[in-house]
Structure formats: C-alpha cells, structure tokens
C-alpha cells in the first residue's frame, strides 16, 4: 500500500451510508446513516451544534476513526483500505488552539510533514518561507520563535501553514478560528476565504458559527444529532424552512437594545 494521495487524482470524498457509534456499553450513535459527496475543489462547511457529530465526520475522513457501518471513499478508495499514515500525510488538518508542538520552532512546526516525507533541508526551508508568507507571517520575524511566543491568531496562522506545507489536496479544519477573539477571528476568516479560492483544494470545514459558514462555504451541510438535515449553497441555505436551519439563522439577527 504505497499509493500516496496524489494531487492529480480527483480529490473526491464520499460518505456511503456511514454510521459510527462509540464502542462502549451504551453504543451511543454519533453519526447515523450519512451519505454525502464532496466533489473536487469544494469548500464544504459542516455546521451544527456541539455534539451533532461534525468532528466525528471529519475524523472519519482521515481515518482517525473508522466507520461502524458503511464506508468513506477518499480518492475513490475506502479509508479502511488506505494505509492510515499515507492517507493522513495527504490530508492537511487544522484544529482549534492549533495544536502546535510547543518544543518546536514555528519553522519546525510548519516543516513537519515535509520532514516526515524526507524532503531535503533546503526544499523544506524554502517551503516553510513560502507557507509563512502565504499566511501573512514574515519568516525572518517568526520562523525561529516558539509557539508560546505567538498570539492566538498567529498560532492559528502557523497551524494553517503547517497543514498546507506538504501541499495536500484535501484540507480538514475543525473550528480553526473558534478560540480567537471576534476581531482576530473576522480577520483570519477574511484572509482564509481569499486563500481558499487561490488554493483550489477540497476543504471540509467544521463550525458552529453560521456567519463563518456563509463566508467560507461553497456548500453548507447542517447536522443535527448525527443526521444530515440540510444541504445547500449559502444563499439557498438561508431560505430553507427546516426548524434547525431556522434556529441557526435566527441566531444571526441581533437587536441592539432589545432586552434578552
């Protein structure tokens, strides 16, 4: 199983009737009968409340979780038949709080996957510079810092740079901007939305923030208790009548002065 995720192949992701339950005595169903096609180049936002199964769907894509029923195809191969290490090296992953390695410098964090893939040092260094520029950090200023010497927003930028370093055709993002203050969050969302169009990657983005979903998504999939309850392009999504959609859209309107 030496096949890598290849940039040339179609970066389709497909969920075929996928269920997942936690393997404890309760057998709690986290995801139930999900079927979903994510075509090449789409930015799919998985929207839902906490516990709706968004993160589980994400982890099913890179094989950190395997389905109890059904299958997930990445580049037309089920995740169960992929070598998990090869699969994950071809999929970028960004999480809340970034999860940067505190004992590595920014450059070492960003260069991690290339170094695992045994690129030569000069190529890694070049790539690290390029990635830091891409996320708006000056390499001369930031490359040698440690994560503790960065602000929350800078850390998240490094997290994005690290996920993109080996040029993976697929990018998974789990509430990457969730822990940031509103101003920094809006800034990163805007920059990232511009970046998305340049990258042309297949992106699956998890959030509970409808605003963020509307800004970034080419399609929004709404989850409720492990089921898909709506799937639509952003403009269309706002017009849907499903109660859970209404619950989310009503959270958008703010009335200044109205008593809570």
């Amino acid at each position: 199983m030496n096949t890598k995720i290849s940039p040339a192949a179609t970066n389709r992701i497909e969920f075929r009737d996928v269920s997942f339950h936690i393997n404890d005595i309760l057998k709690r169903l986290i995801v139930s009968q999900v079927s979903l096609e994510i075509p090449h180049g789409e930015t799919l936002v998985l929207l839902g409340r906490s516990g709706s199964g968004k993160t589980t769907l994400l982890k099913l894509i890179n094989g950190m979780l395997l389905p109890t029923k059904g299958e997930i195809l990445v580049q037309d191969r089920p995740t169960t038949s992929w070598d998990p290490i090869r699969l994950r090296r071809g999929i970028g992953y960004v999480i809340q709080e970034a999860g940067l390695f505190p004992h590595f410098t920014v450059a070492e964090n960003v260069g991690l996957v290339p170094s695992l893939e045994s690129w030569d040092a000069a190529r890694i260094a070049g790539r690290v510079d390029e990635m830091l520029h891409l996320v708006g950090l000056d390499p001369r200023e930031f490359a040698h810092r440690h994560p503790r010497e960065l602000s929350g927003g800078q850390r998240q930028r490094v997290g994005v740079a690290r996920a993109l370093a080996a040029d993976p055709p697929i990018l998974l993002m789990d509430e990457p901007f969730g822990a940031l203050d509103p101003v920094t969050r809006a800034e990163l969302q805007r920059e990232f939305s511009a970046l998305v169009h340049r990258l042309g990657k297949t992106i699956v983005f998890v959030t509970h923030d409808l605003r963020e979903a509307l800004l970034l998504a080419s399609r929004i999939v709404l989850l409720e208790a492990g089921h898909i309850v709506a799937s639509a392009a952003p403009q269309e999504f706002l017009r849907l009548e499903h109660p859970e959609v209404r619950a989310f859209t009503s959270s958008l309107t703010v009335m200044p002065g109205a008593s809570a």
Partner: peptide
C-alpha cells in the same frame, strides 16, 4: 490537541512517542 495534531499529520506511533511525547 498536540497529540491529535501529531496523529492527524500522519506521524507513526513511534514518531509520536520519540519526537513529541518524550521531549515534552
């Protein structure tokens, strides 16, 4: 979060142990 990131980036168990867990 650090361990999750390490796993998600395709580090093997041994790499996680010697390059992440042990130094930390």
């Amino acid at each position: 979060a650090v361990l999750e990131a390490a796993e998600a980036m395709g580090m093997t168990r041994a790499q996680i142990l010697f390059r992440v867990r042990f130094p930390l």
